[in-house]
């Protein structure tokens, strides 16, 4: 009985789950090829016109461009803030450390709507208008907790030996930071960078409340879905889906290879130099 469960039921459930994850996305991709103005099955005649038309849609292209800009801005802020915050957490201990971590991670635990709304009220107070800068700021607020965790995880695996050796050889703190700590952290930094880009690109709630009249791609899609569906929406969704998933898979692979390589090069680095 137990053998059967292990070798039939569990793999079965797993592949069923994979189907649950992928089938809707495949069905949506197919819908983008339907030669009709309505989203409906079955598909009798096929066309590629939606896929080509949607790339000429000005609003869609503008929304994608805004999403891309916001993603880059917010990622730069997140990593620039996350790095020193991770250093600070690594250097504190006891109650101060617990408190610091709790406060830094708090935005990740607040209901997203509440976090977005509190920022919406706050930016008005400090004289920042809704729009690109506000969205980027909002996304950074959401991303920093993840950046801190990713960098801290890597930082915790780093022994003191290398920094101490460098110090004994006469390096000051700046040289240790630039030549030893940052190279060691580079896989985590790259990982955080790519993760933040995706996180920002996908975000709806913060963009919706902080964007004002500026619409990122998810906000535009949400607005259009409320009016009604046409296969063009399926087409553009599919294009974006393939782009982000491809980027995500590439990022994951890239970071994994890189962290393996840096581990081997740091331990056997002397030989290679």
């Amino acid at each position: 009985m137990s053998m059967k469960l292990r070798h039939l039921a569990l793999p079965g459930l797993f592949w069923l789950f994979v189907a649950y994850l992928f089938l809707p996305l495949l069905v949506m991709a197919a819908m983008g090829f339907r030669d009709s103005n309505f989203v409906a099955f079955p598909i009798h005649s096929w066309t590629t016109k939606w896929y080509s038309e949607v790339l000429l849609d000005r609003d869609v292209m503008e929304a994608l461009w805004l999403s891309a800009r916001v993603a880059v801005f917010s990622t730069l802020i997140s990593v620039a803030v996350g790095l020193p915050v991770a250093f600070a957490v690594a250097r504190t201990s006891g109650i101060a450390r617990g408190l610091l971590i709790a406060l830094i991670l708090l935005p990740a635990f607040l209901p997203v709507v509440v976090s977005a709304i509190s920022l919406r009220i706050f930016i008005g107070r400090i004289g920042l208008e809704t729009g690109t800068a506000a969205i980027a700021f909002g996304h950074a607020v959401g991303s920093v907790p993840f950046v801190v965790i990713m960098i801290l995880t890597r930082l915790n695996t780093m022994g003191r030996n290398m920094a101490d050796a460098a110090r004994n050889l006469g390096a000051d703190d700046v040289i240790i930071l630039v030549r030893i700590v940052l190279p060691y952290l580079s896989p985590a930094l790259l990982g955080a960078f790519m993760f933040c880009l995706l996180l920002s690109f996908e975000d709806f709630v913060r963009s919706f409340f902080l964007g004002g009249f500026e619409q990122t791609f998810p906000v535009l899609l949400f607005a259009r879905l409320r009016f009604g569906f046409d296969p063009g929406l399926a087409a553009i969704s599919t294009i974006v889906l393939i782009a982000t998933t491809g980027f995500g898979l590439y990022a994951e692979r890239f970071v994994r290879k890189r962290s393996l390589r840096s581990e081997t090069s740091l331990t056997s680095g002397a030989k290679n130099d």
Partner: peptide, 11 residues
């Protein structure tokens, strides 16, 4: 790695 809105639409 796909946004909430796109996944809603897929469903």
């Amino acid at each position: 790695w796909v946004s909430e809105i796109i996944r809603s639409f897929a469903w």
